[in-house]
Design a protein around this nucleic acid. Structure first.
Ligand SMILES: NC(=O)c1ccc[n+]([C@@H]2O[C@H](COP(=O)([O-])OP(=O)(O)OC[C@H]3O[C@@H](n4cnc5c(N)ncnc54)[C@H](O)[C@@H]3O)[C@@H](O)[C@H]2O)c1
Ligand SMILES: NC(=O)c1ccc[n+]([C@@H]2O[C@H](COP(=O)([O-])OP(=O)(O)OC[C@H]3O[C@@H](n4cnc5c(N)ncnc54)[C@H](O)[C@@H]3O)[C@@H](O)[C@H]2O)c1
Lengths: 203, 203
DNA sequence: CTCACAATGTGAATCTTTTCACACTTGAAA
DNA sequence: TTTCAAGTGTGAAAAGATTCACATTGTGAG
C-alpha cells in the first residue's frame, strides 16, 4: 500500500526540525512542542509517530535522537543524490539553497544545453551537457531530478530523463507533464501558490 | 463555510490553463481535455465546475470564455496587488517570473532593508525600505505578501507586515510562523519538496 | 509509598475528498 | 424522425484524513 503523501510530507518536516533541535542540544521533546515548530497538531503528530518504532514517555516525551533514527528508518536515511536540469535563475538559486542547507540530500550534478552553463561548478556541483545525462545518472544512481527548464522543452526533457532511469521529478515549469504513471511527478508552480494565498487573504 | 484549499488550488489551475487556451483560439473544451492539461480527473473537474454558474453541453463541452468568466466570478477577478519582502536571489527570481507571466496578479512593490536593494526597479516593480511598508501597503491595498527573507528575521517581518494589514503570507523561509490564526500562511519549502519527491522516487 | 499530573497511544467517531455509476442531454448521422 | 455515441451533472458510496476522548503510564512531590 502506498503511503499517504500528506503524511510523508509531515514526517519529513518533523525530521528537519528534529535535526535542528538535536544540533541545538535538545534531547527530548513533547508532541505539543513539535507541534509549535511544524504546524501539525499534537494529536496528529502522535498518530504519525505511532508507526515509527520509537515511543515516547508521558514524563519526557520523545527522545530526539531516537526519533530521528526511527524516521530515517521509516523513510530512508541515505543522503539522496539528485540532479537539476536547467541552470538558469531558478536552477542556480535552488542549487545554492539546497546544497547550502539540506541534511538529507545533495544536488550532485547540474545539466543544461547552453555551452556557457556547462562545465562550471555551482554550489559544489558540477554542470554537464544534457546529452551526458544518462551516463552520469547511471554512474551516480540518480533517480530524482529537479526540472527548471523553459516550458517549451519540459516535456521532452522529462521523457529523456525518465528513459535514463529517473523515477521522480520535481517540476517547476508550469506545464502538466505526461509520463508513464509509475513516475512520480510533483508540480510546484509559484504563480498558483501566490494566487492561492491571495484568494485566502480575501476570504 | 471556508472553501477547500485543494479545490481552490485546482480551480486556479483550470483558470490558468483556460486563459492559455483562449489565447490559442480554442473556444470549447471537454472535461477530459482539461484533465490532460491539469492533472485532475474528468469527474473531479466536472464536480469542481458544478458550483460555477456555467454549465457544459454533452456535444460541445464547456465554452472556454464563459468558464473563465465563471471562475473569475467564483474566486475573484481583480488583478491582485501583492508585495514581496526580501530582494535576494529568490526574491528577485520570483518577482521576474511572476511579473513576466501572471495574468491574475502583479507584484507591485518590493521591500528590503539593505540600502543597495532599496530604490531600485525589478521587473517593473519599485523597491522600498521595509520601514515604509505600512504606508505603501495602505496606499496600494496590499493584503498579500511573499516572504523571501532570511530565517532569522522571518517571524519579526511577518509580525510587522500583519500589523500593517496583511492577511496572507506565502512564506519561503524554512520556519513555522506564529501569527494570529485569521492570517493565512502557506509555507513552500523547496528542500522538503525535493525530499518528498526523492522518497516517492524510491517507493 | 502513594498520589496527582501531564502526556502518550489509540480505537472510534467525524469530517473531508474523491470516485462511481448512471440518468439525462445534445447533436449528428442514417 | 429516430437512433446512436459521447458527454455532462450529480446522488450516493467509498476512501482517506483528522480529531476526539480517554484509559494508560511514567515521574516527581509530598
Ligand atoms: N525564475 C523563477 O522564479 C521561476 C519560478 C517558477 C518557475 N519558473 C520556471 O522555471 C523554468 C526556468 O526558469 P528560469 O527563470 O530559471 O529560466 P532561465 O531561462 O533563466 O533558465 C532556463 C535554463 O534552462 C536551460 N535549457 C533550455 N533548454 C534546455 C534543455 N533542452 N535542456 C536543458 N536545459 C535547457 C537554459 O539554457 C537555461 O539555462 C521556467 O519553466 C520557468 O517558467 C521560474
Ligand atoms: N535561494 C533559494 O532558492 C531559496 C529557496 C528556498 C528558500 N529560500 C529561503 O528564502 C529566503 C531568502 O533566500 P535568498 O537565497 O534569496 O537569500 P538572500 O540572502 O539572497 O536574500 C535575502 C534578502 O532579504 C533581505 N533582508 C534581510 N533582512 C531583512 C529584513 N528584516 N527585512 C527585509 N528584508 C531583509 C536581505 O537584504 C536580502 O536581500 C531564505 O530564508 C532562504 O532560506 C531560498
Amino acid at each position: 500500500m502506498r503511503r499517504s503523501e500528506r503524511k510523508i510530507e509531515r514526517i519529513i518536516n518533523y525530521r528537519r526540525v528534529l535535526i535542528k533541535l538535536e544540533r541545538a542540544g535538545e534531547t527530548n521533546i513533547f508532541s505539543h512542542q513539535l507541534s509549535a515548530l511544524t504546524n501539525a497538531t499534537p494529536a496528529q503528530i502522535r498518530r504519525d509517530l505511532m508507526e515509527m518504532d520509537t515511543s515516547g514517555s508521558p514524563a519526557h516525551g520523545y527522545v530526539v535522537k531516537d526519533l530521528i533514527k526511527s524516521i530515517n528508518n521509516y523513510i530512508g536515511a541515505d543522503k539522496e543524490q539528485v540532479a537539476i536540469i536547467g541552470l538558469g535563475n531558478l536552477g542556480k538559486a535552488i542549487t545554492n539553497y539546497v546544497n547550502g542547507s539540506s541534511e538529507n540530500l545533495k544536488i550532485v550534478a547540474g545539466f543544461d544545453i547552453k555551452s556557457e552553463k556547462v562545465n562550471r561548478v555551482v554550489a559544489g556541483c558540477h554542470s554537464y551537457h544534457l546529452q551526458d545525462f544518462e551516463k552520469i545518472a547511471k554512474e551516480r544512481g540518480i533517480k530524482t531530478v529537479i526540472l527548471t527548464v523553459p516550458v517549451r522543452v519540459a516535456q521532452d526533457v522529462a521523457e529523456q530523463v525518465t528513459k535514463a532511469g529517473v523515477r521522480g521529478i520535481l517540476n517547476y515549469a508550469p506545464v502538466n507533464l505526461h509520463l508513464s504513471d509509475d513516475i512520480y511527478v510533483e508540480n510546484r508552480d509559484m504563480i498558483s501558490a501566490v494566487e492561492k494565498v491571495a484568494y485566502f487573504s480575501d476570504h
